[in-house]
């Protein structure tokens, strides 16, 4: 039995290296115990698996791409599943093209869940500005932001690059229970996970909540559409989510009020403006607009 402990950062690269060496040494999947934990520099430093000429290991196109997604899944069997497929591919390389095969279908499913989770992280991370008190902008011109996020899979490592590409001119940190990512002076590094940090209040968050409330159209309520894309498990870390119950409660009433209220009189200034506009754009035949003045309405 071979035990392989993969590091918490650089997990995929380490898995790939280990898997190649194991396959070269002809170690079957049932003889490997995989886990993820403390960083190990060289996996097989003490017991080199391969002696002499190594067997050439090749995998079909597509496997590595898929493995690179599926490996971030929370499934405790993920490393073993990947190695199992790698092993099977050695004798049956066309297996990769059969999406309906249970082993392959499983990897696709895992990759899909990881992709979704990573996409939701890109969408739902909410930064707050920290250290706004430091007025010494000459020393540190970069503004600093931090966020707390709880992904369902190990998606921070593959996802952090997106934030580095996007928020290039600011320093930021994303904390998750498993891992934290820090982007400082243009350099990205990872640190161990953390408990939820206390982030200072951010006034822009109130503006965002105002926007969320105002952009909602109470005349068209589709709660299921909202929840399928923004599942409740994310709500606790979204500053706007606690507004939803109240928005829903008042929606029907607001929509009814719009229908019930009788058309009102145009404001006085409208007439003046309209006269000016009509000089440039006279009403065309077929128009249903009535240029009524306030006086007309009382006739």
């Amino acid at each position: 039995m071979v035990t392989v402990v993969l590091p918490t950062v650089g997990t995929f690269t380490a898995w790939r290296k280990a898997a190649r060496e194991l396959a070269q040494a002809n170690v079957p999947p049932q003889s490997v115990l995989w886990s993820r934990g403390e960083d190990t520099v060289d996996l097989f430093a003490d017991t080199p698996l391969v002696t002499g000429s190594a067997r050439q290991i090749s995998v079909p196109k597509g496997f590595l791409e898929l493995a690179q997604r599926a490996i971030w899944h929370a499934d405790p069997e993920r490393f073993a599943r990947l190695y199992g497929v790698l092993w099977a591919l050695q004798s049956n390389p066309v297996l990769m093209r059969d999406r309906t095969h249970p082993m392959i279908a499983r990897l696709y499913m895992m990759a899909k869940e990881v992709n979704r989770d990573q996409h939701k992280m890109k969408a739902f991370v909410r930064f707050r500005e920290i250290d706004t008190t430091t007025t010494d902008t000459a020393a540190s011109p970069r503004r600093r932001f931090a966020a707390w996020f709880e992904p369902s899979h190990f998606t921070l490592e593959p996802g952090a690059q997106f934030f580095a590409n996007r928020f290039g001119d600011m320093d930021w940190a994303i904390f998750t229970p498993d891992l934290s990512a820090h982007f400082t002076q243009g350099r990205l590094r990872f640190e161990p996970g953390a408990a939820r940090p206390e982030l200072p209040a951010d006034a822009t968050e109130d503006l965002w909540r105002t926007y969320f409330r105002s952009i909602f159209n109470p005349a068209r309520v589709k709660v299921r559409a909202m929840q399928s894309e923004m599942p409740k498990k994310y709500w606790k870390n979204l500053p706007e989510a606690d507004l939803i119950p109240d928005m829903l409660a008042k929606a029907q009433e607001r929509a009814n009020a719009m229908v019930a209220s009788a058309p009102s009189l145009p404001p006085v200034r409208a007439q003046k403006l309209r006269d000016r506009v009509r000089a440039t754009y006279p009403l065309r035949p077929g128009s249903k607009i009535q240029d009524r003045t306030q006086d007309d309405l009382f006739e």
């Binding site: 926007y211 589709k222 709660v223 559409a225 909202m226």
Partner: peptide
């Protein structure tokens, strides 16, 4: 594109 939030009308922000 990325939808950063959804309002109860089911529309993405």
């Amino acid at each position: 594109g990325i939808c950063h939030a959804y309002t109860p009308d089911g529309r993405c922000i």
